[in-house]
Design a protein around this nucleic acid. Structure first.
Length: 219
DNA sequence: TCTCTGAGAATCTGGGGTGT
DNA sequence: ACACCCCAGATTCTCAGAGA
């Protein structure tokens, strides 16, 4: 069975049984480019991002742990991969597919996402999100977790907050932000986003129930 | 036997530096 | 400003070994 379908079915089954509406927003895969580059090239044109492009800057902001060198974008889609500086140099890369769940613009085409994942044959981590029509009570989260407010490089305090260590196996961090404001949607919409690690794609397990419990603490 | 992965070598490339 | 060169950075080639 193909990977994207498998992930979606796993989540939708949980949704049906627990009366929620979790979605996948981003997918990341660490892979060896060496024997996959050729297949990836068949999907379309990968454009190298200029050293000072702001997309590259945004990508770098998202990933602190490994130093990123060059990044490539597939046509006009929110599908990128970038080379890591690990030894052996430039062999390993990270594929990032994002913006799969959004309202202000079209997500990357599903068939294309599916094709990319079939080449990857693996998923390293996922951003699973839930959008809610109310403003979460951040002060309630502050009682249980360490909540970090995101401050832009220019020093502007934003409405985005991180729970960096939510003490849930498989969840690295949770981001809470005002989606309605960020995408000028003209309605109250806040997003919870959990970065979930996948240890073994063949024995898929996601801490969705634990994530749901966390979200309910902020009502 | 076939497919996939890893390491080293060979080759290519883009952007910074230099000269006009 | 522009053309040219250089070379570290990046990619591709090739072969060998592991696993199914």
């Amino acid at each position: 069975m193909e990977i994207l379908q498998e992930l979606e079915e796993f989540i939708s089954e949980f949704n049906n049984n627990n009366d929620v509406d979790f979605s996948i927003d981003s997918i990341r895969v660490e892979f060896s480019k060496q024997h996959k580059k050729k297949e990836l090239d068949e999907l379309g044109q990968w454009k190298k991002l200029k050293k000072n492009s702001n997309i590259l800057f945004k990508l770098k902001k998202r990933l602190i742990y490994d130093e990123i060198t060059t990044a490539y974008q597939l046509e006009k889609h929110n599908i990128y991969y970038y080379n890591m500086q690990d030894a052996p140099k430039y062999r390993k890369a990270i594929m990032v597919i994002f913006g799969l769940k959004q309202y202000h613009q079209e997500p990357p085409p599903r068939t294309l996402v599916s094709q990319v994942l079939n080449i990857m044959k693996d998923v390293t981590n996922l951003d699973v999100c839930l959008d809610v029509p109310y403003q979460p009570r951040l002060e309630k989260f502050k009682k249980r977790y360490i909540l970090d407010q995101y401050i832009t490089p220019k020093g502007v305090k934003t409405q985005t907050h991180y729970i960096n260590n939510p003490h849930i196996m498989g969840i690295e961090k949770v981001t809470i932000y005002n989606k309605g404001f960020k995408n000028s949607l003209n309605r109250i919409l806040w997003r919870f986003e959990a970065k979930m690690l996948i240890h073994n794609i063949k024995a898929l397990a996601l801490p969705l129930y634990e994530f749901k419990q966390l979200i309910e603490k902020g009502r």
